[in-house]
Design a protein around this nucleic acid. Structure first.
Length: 256
DNA sequence: ATGGTGGCACCGCCA
């Protein structure tokens, strides 16, 4: 079972690249973040011939998540319990034997802002959700744009960027606290070194070619699922070609 | 190397 996560930064702007990428790569499940479209305007028709069932939860302008799947999606949940803002950042469904939790974690704007507090709160709520709803022995994949670089090797300039809302102690601790419940960062099972990124800021000129990036997107698997993982990779090529999002595709293969 | 961009919906906000 092949599972991919991708921050689209507007799904309506990525229809062509998504169709082409899905055709070429055929993951069983694709989790998308930042669809930036209300549900009644989701471009369902564009994907109708793709062979994927799609569930989505969006809002106007910001956020929005979707799950594409070649197998039936069951046990769907549309929002994170107790999320005080009820934004479209969460989708959970079961595909085959795997529970998929697709999240777009708040970016946090500035360290002293309410949005940053909301980001920290979001991780706490997620931990409560996993704790109250599941057993870490189950096969669960938590994935998405987590808006956190876990360690120094996950950013291009660890000294200069330290303190950023996506690279500072409070968010790292908040993420690790969820990880402690029972998740493995599947990408790191296969790649231990620096320089592997999933995000290159548009505003930094030529950042993909200079590899001025961040690792902000993750596939986190519980132990029993991580044990079945035979490969995990970032599609850097997709970012080099024509205009895509400033994130790229992160994919893992699970032999289930 | 935090914006020089990009996207959405409006005339600014968010990343």
């Amino acid at each position: 079972m092949k599972i991919t996560t991708y921050n689209a930064n507007s799904i309506r702007s990525r229809i062509e690249i998504l169709l082409r990428w899905l055709e070429a790569n055929r993951p069983d499940v694709l989790c998308v973040q930042e669809t930036k479209v209300q549900d009644d305007q989701f471009p369902l028709e564009a994907f109708s011939g793709s062979g994927y069932e799609i569930i989505f939860r969006g809002q106007k302008k910001y956020n929005g998540v979707a799950i594409f799947s070649r197998r039936p999606l069951t046990e769907i949940e549309w929002q994170l319990p107790d999320d005080p803002l009820v934004q479209a950042r969460f989708l959970k469904a079961k595909a085959g034997k795997v529970v998929i939790v697709n999240t777009y974690i708040p970016q946090g704007q500035e360290r002293d802002s309410e949005k940053f507090q909301y980001k920290l709160e979001y991780f706490r709520l997620l931990k409560d959700y996993f704790k109250s709803r599941f057993d870490p022995k189950e096969k669960i994949l938590w994935c998405g744009d987590l808006n956190v670089a876990r360690e120094a090797i996950d950013v291009h300039d660890p000294k200069g960027l330290w303190g950023h809302v996506c690279y500072c102690k409070p968010v790292q601790d908040a993420l690790e606290d969820v990880m402690k419940w029972g998740f493995v960062d599947v990408f790191r099972l296969f790649h231990q070194g620096p320089g592997h990124y999933t995000f290159w800021d548009y505003r930094v000129h030529n950042s993909p070619n200079l590899n001025i990036g961040w690792r902000l997107d993750y596939l986190m698997a519980t132990d029993s699922l991580a044990k079945t993982c035979s490969d995990c990779s970032i599609d850097v090529e997709a970012r080099m070609g024509e205009k895509t999002s400033d994130h790229t595709f992160l994919t893992a293969q699970f032999d289930l």
